[in-house]
Simulated scan of single mutants.
Amino acid sequence: MTLEILTSDALPVKHGFFTRKGGASSGVFAGLNCGQGSTDQSEIVAINRTRVAEAMGVLPEHLVGVHQVHSATAVTVDAPLTEKPRADALVTRTPGIALSVLTADCQPVLFADAQAGVIGAAHAGWRGALDGVLDATIDAMEALGARRDHINAVIGPAISQRAYEVGPEFLDSFMAEDPEYARYFINGNGDRMLFDLPGFGLNRLRAAGVGHAEWTRHCTFSDPDRFYSYRRTTHAKEADYGRLIAAISL
């Protein structure tokens, strides 16, 4: 099966939000599981990642990522990494390197200032987005010569509001930062709320002053044939879940 790669006209560089289609994994990981931290067979994950690298036109070792920890840390990359730093975003101005992030409900966000030749990729779950990982990515891109008003940012497949039920403590975390964030919550059952993660991500990107921000409007939870979902796996009481990959290169 061929790979399915979602793209956006807003990013005029090589990029892709890869769905789970076209991979070598089986069982609960069936498809293009690129998560080296999953319990999937490491050699199968390596095959999947090689397929992604080929689709991006880079060597497998030039498909770089980080050890994601739900932080607000962005790192600058100018060569293939020998060890993965603990961070949740990467930026570069070096051609031939594909920046990548892994997700399974969190937001994969790809950035490009095509004029300056600077790109970025961020893993933005609720904690990272609230703590400022998107802002940190933009700051790191500016340090390489990008202009924030020239940066286009695209949020890929992520969990949508209708599927993202949270409790009152979750709401409290956002209200403590800014009472205006209440707009990203609607009432659910009982004391439950439904949180708009992509809407919040778009707000943070636009508040940071990027030239353009959009969401591809794909919900990971609601489309099991195309996307992995941590929350869907949890509801189904499955042992583990695959990780989607998003990548961008100059």
Rank of each mutant, 00 (worst) to 15 (best):
L81E: 15
V69S: 15
T7R: 15
P12D: 06
V52E: 09
V133D: 12
H15E: 08
H150Q: 15
P179K: 10
L3N: 04
R51I: 01
R148G: 13
G27L: 06
A163P: 00
T103H: 07
R226H: 14
E180G: 12
R231L: 13
N187Y: 06
D225E: 14
E214I: 13
V154Q: 01
A208V: 11
A143D: 14
G27H: 05
D172R: 13
G57W: 10
Y241T: 15
I5L: 03
S229N: 01
R86Q: 14
Q161T: 00
S249F: 01
A129G: 14
P179T: 14
L90P: 00
D191H: 11
L144A: 08
M141C: 12
L197W: 04
R148W: 11
E142G: 07
H15G: 05
A72H: 15
E169H: 10
P224S: 13
V118N: 04
A182N: 09
G128M: 05
I151T: 12
R243G: 10
R162F: 01
V58Q: 03
A163V: 00
T2E: 15
H212K: 14
D40H: 11
F18S: 08
L102R: 04
T76V: 15
D105K: 01
I245N: 11
G16S: 08
N187E: 15
H218V: 01
T103K: 03
H218N: 14
R243D: 07
V45M: 11
F185Y: 08
S25P: 03
R231C: 03
E238R: 15
G22V: 09
R20W: 02
V64S: 08
Y184I: 06
M56E: 08
D223M: 09
A122V: 00
Y164F: 15
R127A: 09
L3A: 04
L244C: 12
V133Q: 11
P198A: 06
V13N: 10
E180S: 13
V58E: 01
F111D: 01
A30Y: 12
G65D: 04
V133T: 14
L99V: 02
Y228D: 07
I44E: 14
H15L: 05
F18H: 07
L205F: 08
A236F: 05
R49L: 09
W126K: 10
I248S: 13
S71V: 15
P198W: 10
S38L: 06
G145E: 10
A239C: 09
T234S: 04
A124T: 03
T2M: 11
L130D: 06
V109R: 04
T7V: 13
F185D: 06
G31W: 08
L3K: 04
L32R: 14
N48E: 10
T50Y: 05
D105F: 00
A87V: 09
H15D: 05
T76S: 12
